[in-house]
Design a binder for these strands. Sequence first.
RNA 1: GGUCCCAUCGUCUAGCGGUUAGGACGCUGGCCUCUCACGCCGGAAACCGGGGUUCAAUUCCCCGUGGGACUACCA
Length: 483
Amino acid sequence: MDTGNHHIRVRFAPSPTGYLHVGGLRTALFNYLFARKGGGKFILRIEDTDQKRSIPDALENLISTLTRAGLQHDEGPDVGGEYGPYIQSQRVEIYQEHIRKLLDAGHAYYCFCDEERLEKLRDEQRKRKRPPMYDGRCRNLSKEDVADKLARGVPFVIRLRYPQEGKTVFDDIVRNRVAIDNSQVDDQVLIKSDGFPTYHFASVVDDHLMKISHVIRGEEWLSSVPKHIFLYKAFGWEVPVFVHLPLLLNTDRSKLSKRQGDVSVESYLEKGYLTEALLNFIALLGWHSADDREIYSLQELEEVFSLERINKAGAVFDMEKLNWMGGYYIRHLDVPYIADQARRFFEEAGIDISDTEKYLKVIATARDYVSCLSMIVEHARMFYDTLTVSEEDKELLEKEDSQRIIAYWVEALGRREKWTPDDVSALVKKAIGELGVKGKGFYFPLRLALFGNCHGPDIPTLIDILGREESVERLTRAMQLER
RNA sequence: GGUCCCAUCGUCUAGCGGUUAGGACGCUGGCCUCUCACGCCGGAAACCGGGGUUCAAUUCCCCGUGGGACUACCA
């Protein structure tokens, strides 16, 4: 099969309907990776031919999300390129010009059937358990008839005159050979009554005009490929290579949808899932290398990605694994980078992180507990906020042993300015020996006083983060609990 | 209903005729440790069913079953 390695041009062509779907991100990612791997171009085209569904700020949002994720396009509405415009609503003259040719050649025809009739028709067909398709009433209208209706201003659409005999066989990188009977293919509407093209028409015209070499998109388009191929041939154009990606699925194995969880990329980004993790996770949904490796940076993916290793079966979007991978990246990337990424979450929570040295230590510790950055605040705020003491905690702190331990530490910490974690470790050993209390009995009250929780990091880490002064202050406060 | 696509642990997957069917998430036992988390080591867990082809099928073919997609003047 010719994968046309020479002039690779691929596109991601979303509709601006509000947000970027994770399935869309996966499609974009695979397009992007294939382009980068093959030294080709990655194009962003906006398919906004449905006036009803387009949302005002969606375009800007889409571009910023894609860019934030690191999938920078080479051509598109914002960056331009020699095959623009890249927004379909700005290309209506082009479609009009092309539909003319189809009409003249007899590959398309005017249809004056109104929606009411079509709906009734489909209902009847469904009732008779027949596939709902256009019955061809306007297929063979006389020239005069058409001219007359047009002159009278009767609303119309333009349909594809699709052959009713034979079958269409085509190749797909993922599916191999696919065959579909032409009798199953409808006379697709190409131009709607508002003059805008449908997806099928616009995408074929644009893919050709934009010299797209490989059409990489979701599997939901597989069964409409015959229509597309027919159009390419009707125009005498070269057919691109098709690559239909397996669907992303809900846990119940239906096509991934909101309703059953978060599907917008923005919402994951807002929660503070690192783009590195999100991309890595999504790359593994339907693609896998030959070995056991699963951790890849975007750059590494660019090097190893190949269309041939894309799977056929749909893949369930597993939050558990995303959470693991999210945490993995937060734990393995550089602390300063994570700290920088997490900054806005602290600012939103109103926590003062101007002490950078402390902030970095907090991040280094708290990151062990989270899978996304928004969670990190909850594991870090006890290093900043005044601790709240519950009744149960108070009971433990008020015990005689607890008070002895705390008093010991206040006194001990007061003896010296500087305390390294090693110094504190030594003091822990010494205190245990001198106080005659050990284990949980020793650690829990201390950790509770310093950190507000019996469970958490070890004492040297806690004191290292808080500093001597704050530590003494917190311990002292624990000795002065109200009765 | 019709057409098309798909089918290895619960999930993501490796496998491309001969393997103790491998890895990851999750689950679980242990180690580390005062605790939690992290980390490390181990365990349970899968070839949808039936026919072929073959000396040999998870792997190739057919049928069945199951799941999904499409079936709009939405993409």
